[in-house]
């Protein structure tokens, strides 16, 4: 029965307005939530447990404030919740090394995560952790089956490929066909009482550091037209002004 780990990250609500104060993003008044793709990872991890048995442990990296999303994961049905204590900004090398150590300590055999976090959009953690563990990885899956070993569906070339994945492995999840379950009252009560296991793990020093944040440059005002007949003029501009067609 597999020891299943799901990585979750706290990010600003995707509908939040992002403010830059000085040269840094200011998240002090932004509502924080579980990164949307991580919800698909939690769902897939729970489906894996339902098919194969075992237990699911949700793991996050961050300060005490990040525990809310662990409680959210617990309310949906994970068995254990773990926070790797960290406050500082880390580059991908430091973060992945930290997570790989945690997965090792927890004895994980399969790791699920979102295809990318809604803040960085990078999608580096899944494949990076897998490489550090010497495991297989598949990214951006849109479906998973658990009969006779793990097989996943993912976009490939001009279509989708069904791929069998040997365990241990790290799997990053896209939205695809996953329907995310909602917590019930019993789950929410259990989550309230659940205690978060806190681990301290040494991470290597970061060699990539943030220089600045800025808002994207404002676009100069475009040309606007009234009425559908203007579409002919716009088509002409696309050819003659934008040189696209």
């Amino acid at each position: 029965m597999p020891n299943i780990i799901v990585l979750v990250k706290q990010v600003p609500d995707t509908n939040a307005k992002i403010v830059v104060t000085g040269d840094r993003v200011d998240l002090s008044s932004v509502k924080m939530v579980m990164s949307p793709y991580d919800e698909f990872a939690v769902e897939t991890a729970l489906q894996h447990r339902e098919a194969a048995g075992g237990e699911v442990t949700a793991v996050t990296v961050g300060g005490a404030g990040a525990e809310k999303i662990l409680k959210d994961a617990k309310a949906i049905g994970v068995d254990h919740i773990v926070r790797i204590d960290a406050d500082d900004e880390m580059d991908s090398n430091a973060l992945q090394t930290l997570i790989a150590k945690a997965v090792g300590e927890l004895g994980g055999e399969v790791v699920y995560c979102g295809k990318s976090a809604a803040d960085t959009g990078a999608g580096s953690t899944g494949p990076g952790v897998a490489e550090r563990m010497g495991w297989a990885s598949v990214s951006n899956i849109i479906g998973a089956g658990f009969d006779g070993g793990l097989s996943v569906t993912m976009p490939s070339g001009g279509g989708n490929a069904k791929v069998s994945v040997p365990l241990p492995a790290v799997i990053s999840c896209d939205k695809g066909g996953f329907k995310v379950r909602k917590p019930n009252v019993k789950g929410i009560m259990q989550a309230k009482r659940a205690s978060v296991e806190v681990h301290s793990i040494e991470a290597p020093a970061s060699t990539v550091s943030i220089v600045s944040h800025a808002l994207p440059p404002a676009k100069p005002a475009g040309k606007s037209y009234e009425g559908g007949a203007a579409a002919a003029e716009v088509a002409k501009l696309l050819r003659d002004e934008a040189n696209i067609l």
Binding site: K219, G222, K223, S224, Y225, E226, G227, G228, A229, A230, A231, A232, V234, A235, K236, L237, L238, A242, L245
Partner: peptide
């Protein structure tokens, strides 16, 4: 419209046939 280089205030029923013919 705040992000558009070319904005057309019209229903798609009005604008798309004209756009298609021009293209």
């Amino acid at each position: 419209f705040q992000h558009a280089d070319y904005g057309i205030v019209a229903t798609w029923e009005e604008a798309l046939p004209v756009l298609h013919e021009s293209l």
